[in-house]
Design a protein around this nucleic acid. Structure first.
Lengths: 150, 150
DNA sequence: CCTATTTGTTAGTGGAGCATACAATTCGGT
DNA sequence: ACCGAATTGTATGCTCCACTAACAAATAGG
Protein backbone atom coordinates (compact mmCIF):
# COMPACT_ATOMS: atom_id res chain seq x y z
CA UNK A 1 0.00 0.00 0.00
CA UNK A 2 1.18 3.52 -0.70
CA UNK A 3 2.59 5.22 2.32
CA UNK A 4 2.92 8.89 3.01
CA UNK A 5 6.39 8.76 1.50
CA UNK A 6 4.99 7.89 -1.89
CA UNK A 7 2.63 10.80 -2.11
CA UNK A 8 4.51 13.47 -0.23
CA UNK A 9 5.70 16.44 -2.19
CA UNK A 10 6.61 18.88 0.51
CA UNK A 11 8.68 21.85 -0.43
CA UNK A 12 12.00 20.25 0.45
CA UNK A 13 11.48 17.02 -1.47
CA UNK A 14 14.18 16.41 -4.01
CA UNK A 15 12.97 13.06 -5.30
CA UNK A 16 15.49 10.65 -6.79
CA UNK A 17 18.27 13.16 -6.28
CA UNK A 18 18.19 12.09 -2.64
CA UNK A 19 19.77 8.78 -3.68
CA UNK A 20 22.88 10.41 -5.13
CA UNK A 21 25.75 10.45 -2.66
CA UNK A 22 27.54 13.21 -4.54
CA UNK A 23 24.48 15.39 -4.23
CA UNK A 24 24.48 15.10 -0.44
CA UNK A 25 28.19 15.81 -0.27
CA UNK A 26 27.56 19.01 -2.21
CA UNK A 27 24.69 20.10 0.02
CA UNK A 28 26.64 19.28 3.17
CA UNK A 29 29.60 21.18 1.84
CA UNK A 30 27.55 24.28 1.17
CA UNK A 31 25.94 24.08 4.61
CA UNK A 32 29.36 23.83 6.22
CA UNK A 33 30.67 26.61 4.02
CA UNK A 34 27.83 28.87 5.07
CA UNK A 35 28.27 28.25 8.77
CA UNK A 36 32.01 28.69 8.43
CA UNK A 37 31.57 32.02 6.69
CA UNK A 38 29.27 33.26 9.44
CA UNK A 39 31.61 32.09 12.18
CA UNK A 40 34.58 33.70 10.47
CA UNK A 41 32.91 36.93 9.38
CA UNK A 42 34.85 38.95 11.98
CA UNK A 43 38.18 37.31 11.19
CA UNK A 44 37.57 37.63 7.47
CA UNK A 45 39.22 34.32 6.69
CA UNK A 46 38.10 31.50 4.42
CA UNK A 47 38.37 27.77 4.98
CA UNK A 48 41.25 27.52 2.55
CA UNK A 49 43.12 30.42 4.06
CA UNK A 50 42.86 28.92 7.54
CA UNK A 51 43.98 25.55 6.22
CA UNK A 52 47.06 27.10 4.65
CA UNK A 53 47.94 29.08 7.77
CA UNK A 54 47.52 25.96 9.85
CA UNK A 55 49.69 23.88 7.56
CA UNK A 56 52.46 26.46 7.33
CA UNK A 57 52.47 26.74 11.11
CA UNK A 58 52.76 22.96 11.44
CA UNK A 59 55.44 22.74 8.76
CA UNK A 60 57.62 25.84 8.68
CA UNK A 61 59.50 26.35 5.41
CA UNK A 62 56.99 24.18 3.57
CA UNK A 63 56.90 24.77 -0.18
CA UNK A 64 53.86 25.90 -2.12
CA UNK A 65 53.73 22.70 -4.10
CA UNK A 66 53.67 20.78 -0.82
CA UNK A 67 50.85 22.89 0.54
CA UNK A 68 48.93 22.25 -2.65
CA UNK A 69 49.55 18.52 -2.48
CA UNK A 70 48.35 18.21 1.10
CA UNK A 71 45.29 20.38 0.57
CA UNK A 72 44.68 19.01 -2.92
CA UNK A 73 44.93 22.25 -4.81
CA UNK A 74 46.87 22.88 -7.99
CA UNK A 75 49.75 25.36 -8.18
CA UNK A 76 47.70 28.22 -9.55
CA UNK A 77 45.05 27.92 -6.85
CA UNK A 78 47.70 27.71 -4.15
CA UNK A 79 49.30 30.85 -5.56
CA UNK A 80 46.19 32.96 -5.23
CA UNK A 81 45.65 31.88 -1.62
CA UNK A 82 49.28 32.42 -0.62
CA UNK A 83 49.20 35.78 -2.41
CA UNK A 84 46.20 36.89 -0.40
CA UNK A 85 47.78 35.80 2.88
CA UNK A 86 51.03 37.51 1.96
CA UNK A 87 49.21 40.72 1.02
CA UNK A 88 47.75 40.70 4.50
CA UNK A 89 51.17 40.05 6.05
CA UNK A 90 50.11 36.74 7.51
CA UNK A 91 52.94 34.85 5.87
CA UNK A 92 56.08 35.50 3.87
CA UNK A 93 57.89 33.70 1.09
CA UNK A 94 61.58 32.92 1.30
CA UNK A 95 63.71 31.23 -1.29
CA UNK A 96 64.41 27.70 -0.13
CA UNK A 97 68.07 27.08 0.65
CA UNK A 98 67.96 23.43 -0.23
CA UNK A 99 66.11 23.78 -3.51
CA UNK A 100 66.20 27.00 -5.49
CA UNK A 101 62.96 26.21 -7.26
CA UNK A 102 60.96 26.22 -4.06
CA UNK A 103 59.59 28.92 -1.87
CA UNK A 104 59.84 28.35 1.88
CA UNK A 105 56.70 29.64 3.56
CA UNK A 106 56.73 31.07 7.07
CA UNK A 107 54.04 32.64 9.22
CA UNK A 108 54.58 36.17 10.44
CA UNK A 109 53.72 37.12 14.02
CA UNK A 110 50.50 38.54 12.68
CA UNK A 111 49.83 35.28 10.92
CA UNK A 112 50.35 33.31 14.09
CA UNK A 113 48.00 35.62 15.96
CA UNK A 114 45.37 35.24 13.22
CA UNK A 115 45.75 31.47 13.33
CA UNK A 116 45.29 31.44 17.09
CA UNK A 117 42.06 33.40 16.71
CA UNK A 118 41.03 31.12 13.87
CA UNK A 119 41.54 28.01 15.96
CA UNK A 120 39.11 29.34 18.54
CA UNK A 121 36.55 29.96 15.85
CA UNK A 122 37.24 26.53 14.34
CA UNK A 123 36.46 24.95 17.70
CA UNK A 124 33.08 26.67 17.71
CA UNK A 125 32.44 25.68 14.13
CA UNK A 126 33.39 22.07 14.78
CA UNK A 127 31.17 21.95 17.84
CA UNK A 128 28.24 23.03 15.68
CA UNK A 129 29.07 20.24 13.26
CA UNK A 130 29.83 17.55 15.81
CA UNK A 131 26.68 18.16 17.80
CA UNK A 132 24.92 16.04 15.18
CA UNK A 133 26.99 12.95 15.81
CA UNK A 134 28.15 10.59 18.48
CA UNK A 135 31.89 10.17 18.82
CA UNK A 136 31.80 6.88 16.94
CA UNK A 137 29.67 8.38 14.19
CA UNK A 138 32.01 11.32 13.78
CA UNK A 139 34.94 8.98 13.48
CA UNK A 140 33.14 6.82 10.97
CA UNK A 141 32.12 9.87 8.94
CA UNK A 142 35.66 11.17 8.75
CA UNK A 143 36.93 7.75 7.80
CA UNK A 144 34.38 7.42 5.01
CA UNK A 145 35.06 10.91 3.69
CA UNK A 146 38.77 10.12 3.71
CA UNK A 147 38.07 7.14 1.48
CA UNK A 148 36.68 9.57 -1.08
CA UNK A 149 39.52 12.06 -1.08
CA UNK A 150 42.10 9.31 -0.55
CA UNK B 1 55.75 4.74 23.65
CA UNK B 2 56.01 6.72 20.44
CA UNK B 3 54.75 4.89 17.43
CA UNK B 4 55.45 5.48 13.78
CA UNK B 5 52.43 7.77 13.69
CA UNK B 6 54.12 10.24 15.98
CA UNK B 7 57.16 10.70 13.82
CA UNK B 8 55.74 10.34 10.36
CA UNK B 9 55.74 13.37 8.17
CA UNK B 10 55.07 11.96 4.76
CA UNK B 11 54.08 14.34 2.04
CA UNK B 12 50.34 13.90 2.53
CA UNK B 13 50.32 14.43 6.28
CA UNK B 14 48.04 17.25 7.32
CA UNK B 15 48.51 16.96 11.08
CA UNK B 16 45.74 18.18 13.36
CA UNK B 17 43.69 19.30 10.40
CA UNK B 18 42.83 15.64 9.96
CA UNK B 19 40.63 15.88 13.07
CA UNK B 20 38.39 18.57 11.59
CA UNK B 21 35.25 17.13 10.06
CA UNK B 22 34.64 20.22 7.97
CA UNK B 23 38.05 19.85 6.44
CA UNK B 24 37.29 16.33 5.23
CA UNK B 25 33.96 17.42 3.83
CA UNK B 26 35.77 20.07 1.83
CA UNK B 27 38.37 17.65 0.49
CA UNK B 28 35.73 15.06 -0.36
CA UNK B 29 33.67 17.71 -2.08
CA UNK B 30 36.57 18.82 -4.25
CA UNK B 31 37.41 15.21 -5.14
CA UNK B 32 33.80 14.60 -6.15
CA UNK B 33 33.71 17.88 -8.03
CA UNK B 34 36.81 16.94 -9.97
CA UNK B 35 35.54 13.51 -10.94
CA UNK B 36 32.19 14.97 -11.87
CA UNK B 37 33.82 17.54 -14.12
CA UNK B 38 35.82 14.86 -15.91
CA UNK B 39 32.80 12.63 -16.34
CA UNK B 40 30.71 15.51 -17.67
CA UNK B 41 33.36 17.11 -19.87
CA UNK B 42 31.61 15.95 -23.04
CA UNK B 43 28.18 17.00 -21.86
CA UNK B 44 29.50 20.31 -20.59
CA UNK B 45 27.18 20.36 -17.61
CA UNK B 46 27.91 21.19 -13.99
CA UNK B 47 26.55 19.49 -10.89
CA UNK B 48 24.23 22.38 -10.24
CA UNK B 49 22.94 22.46 -13.79
CA UNK B 50 22.16 18.75 -13.72
CA UNK B 51 20.44 19.10 -10.36
CA UNK B 52 18.22 21.86 -11.71
CA UNK B 53 17.35 19.94 -14.88
CA UNK B 54 16.54 16.88 -12.78
CA UNK B 55 14.36 18.85 -10.40
CA UNK B 56 12.45 20.66 -13.13
CA UNK B 57 11.83 17.35 -14.85
CA UNK B 58 10.50 15.87 -11.61
CA UNK B 59 8.39 18.93 -10.86
CA UNK B 60 7.17 20.62 -14.03
CA UNK B 61 6.13 24.24 -13.57
CA UNK B 62 8.25 24.51 -10.44
CA UNK B 63 9.17 28.07 -9.51
CA UNK B 64 12.69 29.38 -9.21
CA UNK B 65 12.33 30.07 -5.53
CA UNK B 66 11.27 26.45 -5.06
CA UNK B 67 14.27 25.16 -6.99
CA UNK B 68 16.49 27.30 -4.84
CA UNK B 69 14.88 26.08 -1.63
CA UNK B 70 15.27 22.43 -2.54
CA UNK B 71 18.85 22.79 -3.74
CA UNK B 72 19.71 25.30 -1.01
CA UNK B 73 20.66 28.16 -3.26
CA UNK B 74 19.59 31.76 -2.94
CA UNK B 75 17.57 33.54 -5.62
CA UNK B 76 20.53 35.19 -7.29
CA UNK B 77 22.44 31.93 -7.63
CA UNK B 78 19.37 30.17 -8.97
CA UNK B 79 18.95 32.93 -11.53
CA UNK B 80 22.40 32.50 -13.02
CA UNK B 81 21.97 28.74 -13.35
CA UNK B 82 18.51 28.98 -14.87
CA UNK B 83 19.79 31.68 -17.20
CA UNK B 84 22.57 29.45 -18.47
CA UNK B 85 20.18 26.55 -19.03
CA UNK B 86 17.73 28.82 -20.79
CA UNK B 87 20.47 30.24 -23.01
CA UNK B 88 21.23 26.70 -24.09
CA UNK B 89 17.52 26.00 -24.71
CA UNK B 90 17.39 23.30 -22.07
CA UNK B 91 14.49 24.91 -20.26
CA UNK B 92 12.09 27.77 -20.63
CA UNK B 93 10.39 30.17 -18.26
CA UNK B 94 6.66 30.70 -18.31
CA UNK B 95 4.68 33.07 -16.18
CA UNK B 96 2.83 31.02 -13.57
CA UNK B 97 -0.93 31.12 -14.01
CA UNK B 98 -1.69 30.66 -10.35
CA UNK B 99 0.78 33.23 -9.06
CA UNK B 100 1.93 36.10 -11.24
CA UNK B 101 5.10 36.59 -9.22
CA UNK B 102 6.41 33.15 -10.08
CA UNK B 103 8.05 31.70 -13.12
CA UNK B 104 6.97 28.19 -14.08
CA UNK B 105 9.97 26.26 -15.32
CA UNK B 106 9.69 23.57 -17.99
CA UNK B 107 12.27 21.43 -19.75
CA UNK B 108 12.47 21.65 -23.51
CA UNK B 109 12.88 18.51 -25.58
CA UNK B 110 16.56 19.33 -25.78
CA UNK B 111 16.65 19.67 -22.03
CA UNK B 112 15.05 16.27 -21.58
CA UNK B 113 17.56 14.74 -23.96
CA UNK B 114 20.42 16.37 -22.10
CA UNK B 115 19.05 15.13 -18.79
CA UNK B 116 18.80 11.60 -20.14
CA UNK B 117 22.44 11.72 -21.17
CA UNK B 118 23.32 13.27 -17.83
CA UNK B 119 21.63 10.47 -15.92
CA UNK B 120 23.82 7.93 -17.68
CA UNK B 121 26.90 9.90 -16.74
CA UNK B 122 25.62 10.28 -13.19
CA UNK B 123 25.31 6.52 -12.90
CA UNK B 124 28.96 6.18 -13.87
CA UNK B 125 29.95 8.91 -11.45
CA UNK B 126 27.98 7.35 -8.63
CA UNK B 127 29.48 3.94 -9.30
CA UNK B 128 32.92 5.49 -8.91
CA UNK B 129 31.85 6.94 -5.57
CA UNK B 130 29.93 3.94 -4.29
CA UNK B 131 32.72 1.50 -5.07
CA UNK B 132 34.29 2.69 -1.82
CA UNK B 133 31.38 1.64 0.35
CA UNK B 134 29.17 -1.25 1.24
CA UNK B 135 25.46 -0.72 0.80
CA UNK B 136 25.00 -0.12 4.53
CA UNK B 137 27.91 2.28 4.63
CA UNK B 138 26.57 4.26 1.71
CA UNK B 139 23.21 4.53 3.41
CA UNK B 140 24.80 5.60 6.68
CA UNK B 141 26.95 8.16 4.89
CA UNK B 142 23.98 9.73 3.14
CA UNK B 143 22.04 9.79 6.38
CA UNK B 144 24.86 11.50 8.22
CA UNK B 145 25.40 14.05 5.46
CA UNK B 146 21.69 14.77 5.49
CA UNK B 147 21.94 15.60 9.18
CA UNK B 148 24.39 18.33 8.24
CA UNK B 149 22.37 19.95 5.48
CA UNK B 150 19.07 19.24 7.25
C1' DC C 1 -7.50 49.37 0.51
C1' DC C 2 -3.02 49.78 1.93
C1' DT C 3 1.00 47.81 3.64
C1' DA C 4 4.11 43.93 4.09
C1' DT C 5 5.82 39.96 1.91
C1' DT C 6 7.21 37.17 -1.86
C1' DT C 7 9.38 36.46 -6.23
C1' DG C 8 12.10 37.67 -9.93
C1' DT C 9 15.58 40.49 -11.88
C1' DT C 10 19.92 43.17 -12.47
C1' DA C 11 24.42 44.48 -11.17
C1' DG C 12 28.45 43.95 -8.75
C1' DT C 13 31.94 41.37 -5.48
C1' DG C 14 34.94 37.62 -4.14
C1' DG C 15 36.78 32.90 -3.62
C1' DA C 16 38.30 29.02 -5.73
C1' DG C 17 38.82 25.93 -9.39
C1' DC C 18 40.87 25.33 -14.12
C1' DA C 19 44.30 25.71 -18.38
C1' DT C 20 48.17 27.63 -20.63
C1' DA C 21 52.52 29.54 -21.18
C1' DC C 22 56.97 30.90 -19.58
C1' DA C 23 61.28 31.21 -16.54
C1' DA C 24 64.34 29.35 -13.25
C1' DT C 25 66.16 25.46 -11.02
C1' DT C 26 67.20 20.78 -10.32
C1' DC C 27 67.48 15.94 -11.67
C1' DG C 28 69.04 12.08 -14.33
C1' DG C 29 71.27 9.57 -17.74
C1' DT C 30 74.97 9.10 -20.77
C1' DA D 1 80.38 17.36 -17.37
C1' DC D 2 76.72 18.12 -20.20
C1' DC D 3 71.99 18.26 -22.04
C1' DG D 4 67.28 17.24 -22.10
C1' DA D 5 63.40 16.23 -18.91
C1' DA D 6 60.98 17.22 -14.90
C1' DT D 7 59.75 20.33 -11.07
C1' DT D 8 58.37 24.66 -9.07
C1' DG D 9 56.82 29.19 -9.16
C1' DT D 10 54.60 32.89 -11.61
C1' DA D 11 51.35 35.52 -14.59
C1' DT D 12 47.15 35.77 -17.19
C1' DG D 13 42.66 34.78 -18.09
C1' DC D 14 38.60 31.95 -17.91
C1' DT D 15 34.26 29.73 -15.49
C1' DC D 16 31.33 28.66 -11.71
C1' DC D 17 28.96 29.57 -7.67
C1' DA D 18 28.25 31.91 -3.51
C1' DC D 19 26.94 36.49 -1.67
C1' DT D 20 24.77 41.54 -1.22
C1' DA D 21 21.94 45.38 -2.41
C1' DA D 22 18.47 47.59 -4.79
C1' DC D 23 14.37 47.69 -7.47
C1' DA D 24 9.84 46.13 -9.79
C1' DA D 25 5.78 43.42 -10.02
C1' DA D 26 2.45 40.58 -7.94
C1' DT D 27 0.17 38.65 -4.04
C1' DA D 28 -1.43 38.22 0.76
C1' DG D 29 -3.52 39.79 4.80
C1' DG D 30 -5.25 42.71 8.23
Amino acid sequence: MPTAALTEDNEDDIGELADIIGFHIRLAHVAVYRHFTETFADLDLTQKQVSVLWLVDDHPAISQIDVGRRLQMDRATTMTIVNRLQDRDYLRRERSESDGRKQALHLTDEGRAALARAKTAIAEHEAWLKSRFSAEEAEKLVEMLARIHE
